[in-house]
Every structure is written in C-alpha cells, then in structure tokens.
Computed example of a mutant assay.
Amino acid sequence: MSHPAPYPVRLADEIARQLGLLTAHLAQLPPHEAVQVIAHVLDPDHGLLDGVTGLMSVSSTFAKTQAERGALPAEVWLALGRATNDLDAIGGDLDEHRAALRRVGTQPSTTAAMPPAPAPLVIRRHR
C-alpha cells in the first residue's frame, strides 16, 4: 500500500496547479481584467510574488541549516539564496509600476473617446 504524499507536498502541488490555471486564465482575460490580476500578483502585502519570495527565503534558511549539517551541498543553499535575492530585486524593480497597474486596473473597461497613445517598447532604464 502506497502512502499518500504529506499535506505540505500536496499543498505545493495544488498551488502549482492553481498557478497554471491562473496563467491560462490571464492569457484569455480582457486587458482590463488582466491588469487587475497582475496588480494582485504584485501586491506588496498579499501578492503572489511576495509569497513566493518569502517561501524561497524560508527554503534558503532551511537549506543553510542542512548544508551546515552536511545533509545538502552548500551549492543548494547558495542557489536558493540567489533565487531569493533575485526575486526580491524583481519585486523592487516592479514597485515603481504598481501604482500604474492599480490605476489602469480600476479604470472603467469602456473605451475612452481618445485611446491611449502607444508607448515605445525600447526604453532606457534609469537608476
């Protein structure tokens, strides 16, 4: 008799499945609704990106402890730490755009008398 996967593993599988569904829905949504979803994903207090960053941070801490015990290679801990830092940096890069996403997401979905002007897709980053 096989043992079912422990609850946290099933939870991780379910979250991955739900993210796949969200991705599929996002690809099909009208622009107004898609922007709302993206704004929720990037919400700094309850968003998916922050949640995944937190999960990776806890994973990195766990891996560090295990690496110190010799149960995991140090490279695993370092890779998880880099992933955490990269996700945090991505969140920081997106911070300045959250207000624009919220603003567009709260506008009525009716077409305006004057459509917005297209923006150039190649811009220089400022730092």
Rank of each mutant, 00 (worst) to 15 (best):
H46G: 10
L78D: 12
D45P: 01
A5T: 08
L11Q: 13
L49H: 04
R69Y: 06
E68L: 08
L55G: 04
K64Q: 13
V41R: 05
A5Y: 08
A27S: 13
L78T: 15
W77I: 00
A39D: 12
A12K: 05
P44S: 02
V35C: 11
A27K: 05
E14F: 09
D43W: 10
P8C: 00
L72S: 06
A79E: 09
T65H: 12
L21I: 05
L49W: 02
W77C: 06
A79D: 10
D50A: 15
L72E: 09
L19Q: 11
D13V: 08
V35H: 07
I15K: 08
S59G: 15
Q66H: 05
R69A: 12
L29Q: 15
L55K: 04
G47F: 02
A39Y: 09
V41F: 10
R17H: 14
G47V: 00
P8D: 00
L26D: 02
E14A: 07
L29W: 08
I38R: 08
G20W: 04
L78I: 07
L29F: 15
L48G: 13
P8G: 00
Q28I: 01
V52I: 14
A34I: 00
V52G: 09
A5L: 14
E68K: 05
V9T: 13
A67F: 01
A71W: 09
G47M: 02
E75M: 10
E68C: 02
G20R: 02
A16M: 07
E75G: 05
T61H: 07
I38L: 14
A67C: 00
I38Q: 07
L11S: 11
V35K: 06
A74G: 03
